[in-house]
């Protein structure tokens, strides 16, 4: 016996800072399909009901991190969120903290670049890079550990899920701390813990974290943010006690 498909109501917080359009909720009704994701539902809305609806996507597979948004109040990726896991009314809002482009689209790239510059999240080495030389060998376990932290797709969900960062926007957030943890692991990066302390050794860095763990719980990639932040805290306190 077949059941009729659900009619979903997507309640979208719409706005357009460029056109001066004030934030307001707008409802769109779509028929739920088998295995439908929010990305598919939003695409249908844009194609049939609201061509001006703004939302970002690239990969549609949870890899690019473009479609981060607040789904029923929780940060998540629209392309990974199945509509069947939600009620018939789903509220969608843009991620907070980031610069709003319009509707569900935010400029995470600008924020991420600012954080990368601030925390100097690149390999620091005094050696002159030789682009033709074979890279030094690395133990597979170490490479795996670095890769584990490098899986961050910079979607911004951890930023939106962090109560500390919402209160204090100068806080580097889990994404910044995770990147420091990643470069600290990398033997090609010659920075010491003292150097990392200068980047995150205050209340805008690792000591500002209140261990609310919203970041860890909303990360769509399941990064070990809880353990990495605790690890960094121990290392940075060790520097502070020297």
């Amino acid at each position: 016996m077949s059941t009729s498909p659900r009619i979903l109501t997507l309640r979208v917080l719409r706005s357009s800072p460029v056109e001066g359009e004030a934030p307001h909720w707008e409802d769109f009704r779509v028929e739920e399909a088998e295995g439908m994701t929010l990305f598919l539902a939003l695409t249908e809305v844009r194609e049939r009901l609201a061509p001006s609806l703004q939302f970002d996507f690239v990969c549609r597979a949870g890899i690019c991190g473009s479609c981060g948004m607040l789904i029923d109040g929780k940060p998540g990726l629209a392309c990974c969120a199945l509509t069947r896991d939600h009620g018939t009314t789903i509220t969608l809002a843009p991620l907070p903290v980031f610069e709003l482009i319009g509707d569900l689209s935010v400029n995470t790239g600008k924020w991420m670049r600012g954080t990368a510059e601030r925390l100097e999240t690149w390999i620091h080495s005094a050696a002159k890079p030789d682009l033709t030389a074979v890279e030094p060998r690395m133990e597979p376990e170490l490479a795996e550990a670095i890769y584990e932290l490098d899986r961050c797709i910079e979607c911004g969900c951890c930023v939106a899920g962090c109560g500390t960062l919402r209160m204090r926007e100068e806080f580097v957030g889990a994404i910044g701390l995770n990147k420091i943890a990643r470069f600290r692991l990398d033997p090609r990066d010659e920075r010491s813990d003292e150097d990392f302390y200068d980047l995150i050794g205050d209340d805008t860095g690792v000591f500002g974290c209140m261990s609310l763990l919203g970041c860890h719980d909303v990360c769509p990639k399941g990064l070990p943010l809880q353990t990495q932040i605790a690890f960094l805290r121990r290392k940075m306190v060790a520097v502070g006690l020297k």
Binding site: K110, W111, A116, E117, E169
Partner: peptide
Amino acid sequence: SIEQTGLPADIPDLPAPGRAA
């Protein structure tokens, strides 16, 4: 990670957009 943002290197309000570094 910087390059993948697709932003030009000379964005005027860097380094910390909307935030005090």
